Simulated scan of single mutants.
Amino acid sequence: MGLIFLIWLLVAAVNDALSRKCFNWIVISGALSAVFSLLMFPDSHPVSIGLLDSFFGAVAAFLVLLVFYRMKMMGAGDVKYALVLGLWVGWKLLLPIWGLSCIFAMAHGLVVRSNLKYFYAPALNWDDGTQKNNRRFIPYVTYLSMAAVIVLMLNK
């Protein structure tokens, strides 16, 4: 089940990096896979958590990121993705994943909003960081996925 989890993380990260959206099919497939893994194969779950820990992770992710969504700082796809990520990893691993993904997102925002973007890659066409047509400029699902992989590698 760990390979399915990694593929799901990869698909979500690449999709968000390219289109700045987390589609519902990604969220639904991740949620179904997580619940199926917990119920049918609890011994082969990637982080060996129980159903209650998984539920608390999902609820915590949803409630905390819902606040940011209501302040229009985050898209609904980011909130739904974090909920499913909470199902996969539980609340104990979700805390360091949140912290690391926030560091990635903050670094992204600082580079995009400053003139450093031209120093690092002058040939790329950088956005100025503003929202155009209700599109978010920070791919937070991508950073959640990257942080999840890093935290899981360091956790083993």
Rank of each mutant, 00 (worst) to 15 (best):
M1L: 01
I7Y: 01
I7D: 01
L9E: 03
L9D: 03
L10D: 00
V11A: 06
A13E: 01
A13C: 05
D16S: 09
D16W: 05
D16H: 10
A17C: 09
S19D: 04
K21V: 12
C22G: 08
C22E: 01
N24F: 01
N24M: 01
W25R: 06
W25Y: 15
W25C: 10
W25H: 14
W25I: 04
I26E: 14
V27G: 08
I28N: 05
S29E: 05
G30F: 04
A31M: 15
L32D: 09
A34D: 08
V35L: 11
V35T: 06
L38S: 09
F41T: 11
D43T: 09
S44F: 14
S44A: 15
H45A: 13
H45T: 13
S48E: 00
I49T: 06
I49M: 04
D53C: 14
F56C: 08
F62V: 00
L63Y: 09
V64D: 04
L65D: 07
V67K: 05
F68L: 11
R70V: 05
R70S: 10
R70T: 03
M71I: 02
M73R: 13
M73S: 12
G75W: 02
G75Y: 04
A76L: 09
G77R: 07
L83C: 13
V84Q: 01
V84S: 03
G86D: 04
L87V: 06
L87E: 01
W88Q: 00
V89S: 03
G90K: 02
L94R: 00
I97L: 06
W98L: 12
G99Y: 03
S101C: 08
S101G: 09
C102M: 14
C102V: 08
A105R: 01
M106W: 06
A107G: 03
G109F: 02
V111F: 05
K117A: 13
K117G: 12
K117V: 15
K117D: 13
F119I: 15
F119R: 15
A121C: 02
A121L: 04
A121E: 00
A123R: 07
N125C: 06
W126G: 02
W126S: 04
W126F: 10
D127W: 14
D128R: 14
T130G: 07
Q131W: 01
N133S: 11
N133D: 08
R136T: 15
F137P: 08
F137N: 15
P139C: 01
Y140E: 07
V141M: 11
Y143C: 06
Y143H: 08
L144R: 03
L152M: 06
K156Q: 15
K156D: 15
